[in-house]
């Protein structure tokens, strides 16, 4: 009797924790704790099997003189900058498609299609598109300039070639965000602006884009995360080559820690910590904004 009555009295206080516990436990074990473990491992020399040797900042000092690290880092910056192109491009396509002609729903879903496909498959598709001697793009360049370019075998172009492949699904994703956003733009404001003589670019810049802010925020978030997570395409299209020129930090980390090139868990963890630090700059920004939105309400 007393047990059940104390449960009744306290259940509003205890219930949230009962609902939360399974989720929190799983998330702590597989996500939160490993972040700190990785930071810890980055101070060791460890092959993943034998004993760990504490080397303090040794791995980080080695990073400073590692040319491959700088190449990866530089490529990450290029990824981040060029990936942002997905945001205006997605907006343009969304505006182009925001009509109600017959079959439009079908067209929209086909435009969105690339996002549903695995990046492994996207990578293979673009490898075929770029393939020397018979790839569609190779042929096109050959036709225009008289000489084809093997994009994925040329260290000047390879990173750009992979980024273009990544942009394909990313633009599709941003497009769908903006299509939804455009659907919810207040029609009376557009009408009012039209009466004031606003149209075209002015209308877009002063009336539409401010109203699309929530969509833009999400588009920027997913694009930054997408750019920094670029692993699949690099792995499938070039395996980091030629001569490591298309590596990014996420790929280089994997290569060092878990591939035929070695099992240097400590060094890999140090690279991951650097990538995490870059990502944290953005994550803190997003969280700060979301936190403000939550507490303002």
């Amino acid at each position: 009797m007393s047990a059940s009555s104390s449960w009744k009295a306290n259940q509003r206080r205890l219930a949230p924790w009962l609902f939360l516990t399974p989720g929190i436990v799983m998330f702590l074990i597989y996500v939160i704790v490993p972040i700190f473990q990785s930071m810890w491992i980055s101070f060791y020399d460890w092959d993943g099997l034998g004993a760990k040797t504490w080397i303090g900042l040794g791995n980080y000092i080695e990073l400073i003189d590692d040319d491959a690290f700088y190449t990866s880092f530089k490529n990450n910056i290029i990824w981040l900058v060029l990936y942002m192109f997905a945001v205006p491009a997605g907006l343009m396509i969304a505006i182009f498609l925001n009509q109600t002609i017959r079959g439009m729903r079908f067209y929209k879903s086909l435009f969105f299609f690339p996002f549903v496909i695995s990046q492994v498959v996207v990578g293979l598709m673009f490898s075929w598109f770029y393939a020397p001697n018979f790839g569609l793009l190779y042929k096109l360049i050959e036709m225009l300039t008289g000489q084809g370019v093997a994009i994925l075998a040329d260290d000047r172009f390879v990173t750009y070639g992979i980024i273009a492949a990544g942009l394909w699904p990313q633009i599709a994703y941003v497009m769908i965000l903006y299509l939804t956003g455009l659907n919810n733009v207040a029609p009376d404001q557009i009408e009012a602006a039209r009466l004031d003589g606003a149209k075209g670019w002015k209308m877009l810049w002063y009336v539409i884009i401010p109203q699309l802010r929530p969509a833009t925020f999400i588009a920027v978030v997913v694009t930054v995360i997408g750019a920094l997570r670029s692993f699949d395409l690099v792995s499938v299209m070039t395996d980091g080559g030629p001569y490591g020129s298309s590596r990014v930090l996420s790929f280089y980390m994997y290569e060092k820690a878990l591939s035929e090139y070695g099992f240097r868990m400590g060094y890999g963890a140090a690279i991951a910590v650097v990538l995490f630090a870059i990502m944290m700059v953005f994550i803190s920004g997003f969280i700060w904004k979301m936190w403000r939105d939550e507490t303002e309400r």
Partner: peptide
């Protein structure tokens, strides 16, 4: 926000552990 932030981290920071 622990769930939200954790969802954004790069996979590589989790890989070894």
């Amino acid at each position: 926000f622990m769930f939200v932030a954790g969802n954004f981290v790069p996979f590589q920071i989790l890989m070894v552990p």
